[in-house]
């Protein structure tokens, strides 16, 4: 089963604590979590860091974390922050669903 977690709040520092808790709660409920992010969602580096942290969490506890849809809106921020430079394919797959099919 996949737990779909939709995050409406902006992925920014002031919401970081709340978003962290909701993702942690979702991990308790299911083995696969799909994050549903709004297309033009505001995001800052703290928000990206949090998603990275959630991916690590999934790996650590043997669960799966995916994005419901490709995060095209995040591309410019990810690029500016240097996350896409020499990025391994699983990163590109995670963010943009590029490369191997889901």
């Amino acid at each position: 089963m996949t737990k779909r977690l939709s995050i409406d709040a902006a992925l920014v520092v002031k919401n970081a604590a709340v978003i962290r808790q909701s993702i942690l709660d979702a991990f308790e409920e299911d083995d696969t979590i799909s994050l549903d992010l709004v297309d033009d969602q505001a995001v800052d580096l703290c928000g990206l860091q949090l998603i990275e942290s959630a991916r690590r969490q999934a790996r650590a506890v043997g669960k799966t974390l995916v994005l419901e849809r490709p995060a095209a809106g995040f591309r410019s921020v990810l690029d500016a922050a240097g996350f896409l430079t020499d990025a391994p394919s699983d990163d590109l797959q995670f963010w943009f669903h590029e490369g191997s099919a889901q």
Binding site: C46, L50, S53, F83, T85
Partner: peptide, 27 residues
């Protein structure tokens, strides 16, 4: 400039202090 982000120090969600900064860069 060529910017490479280093997220290696970001802890898993259960251990992260969500508003702390863990990233590093190599430019």
């Amino acid at each position: 400039a060529r910017v490479v982000a280093d997220a290696s120090r970001v802890p898993p969600l259960s251990q992260i202090e969500p508003t702390d900064h863990y990233l590093a860069w190599d430019v």
